[in-house]
Design a protein around this nucleic acid. Structure first.
Lengths: 148, 148
DNA sequence: AAACTACTTGCAACTGAATTGCATTAATCG
DNA sequence: CGATTAATGCAATTCAGTTGCAAGTAGTTT
């Protein structure tokens, strides 16, 4: 995708299109998996990005709705661009940005985002002994195609 | 429960029954919710427990199978004794210690442990586009009875 | 195109959870 | 009751993430 394309995304979300943000947005947009602060940082070996700027950029992406964050097994935040979910056969990308499952590979520890498919919905479950359930989060553990 | 009772649990799991461990085990056993290091620490205002000892005790409980840990929304570890899960109507306590769901109250941020009930099982979901699924974790978000 | 201004960046210093090393102390077993 | 092995307590350290502030820059105004 062109720089123009990413610039527009940033501006549409109320963020100034700075060089640093464009580079981070492009990197995340092209990644198949959610990435941590340090992983992102390592991708900019040559032209170092300040760690605070990176933290603030990632938080800005999350706050404006460009990205979402998910904690990995080490409880560090991983960041992923919305609407990049892997689409299994016959599944339309969910309209609801927050409705997606996360797949954590036990071998490589990478996290992949999935839309919530029919099998993952348990509609009956609205109330459990007085606990009112609004939404649920699914974390799938297993082996990703790369590690099999 | 008596000190004898807790001492036995510790020894059965290969841990020496020290005063500190007994107090922590008793506290956790009587708690309806999973507790963080700092919450536990705060419960021992008078007779302070060393923070490192507390960390090591909690890890020992997890490693020997007395307790399990779950990350809260702030990504701090919360600890809970196994087999204290809330039992909804007609549910038998799960035999599999690791099969339980967590309910996170959006109001008070407390985490309650539940056994996995039938509605939460999606057996069909074993493979998703080449991602082999071994197990899944469910985090339910809503309002607990206390906060309603 | 220069000036403006509000947002963004970079640096240093800080916070808070959790860990490590090591000397001291206590629980268990013979 | 000792001996042995594990547990404790303290200081120092690590690491992710945050805060405050001065300097820089994008997007807008004139």
């Amino acid at each position: 995708m062109s720089e123009q394309f990413y610039s527009e995304i940033l501006r549409e979300h109320g963020l100034k299109a700075t060089v640093t943000r464009l580079r981070i947005l492009e990197l995340l947009s092209e990644s198949k998996v959610a990435m941590s602060h340090s992983e992102i940082s390592d991708c900019f070996d040559n032209e170092k990005i300040d760690k605070v700027t990176l933290y603030r950029t990632l938080n800005a992406f999350v706050e404006c709705g460009i990205a979402h964050k998910v904690a990995n097994e080490d409880r560090n935040w991983l960041y992923a661009i919305f609407d990049k979910d892997i689409k299994p056969n016959g599944t339309e990308g969910s309209e609801h940005k927050h409705e997606h499952a996360h797949f954590i590979c036990s071998a490589c520890d990478k996290i992949y985002c999935f839309p919530v498919v029919e099998e993952m919905k348990f509609n009956k479950l609205k109330d459990l002994m007085g606990f009112k359930i609004d939404q649920h989060e699914i974390r799938l553990h297993g082996t990703c195609p790369v590690c099999q």
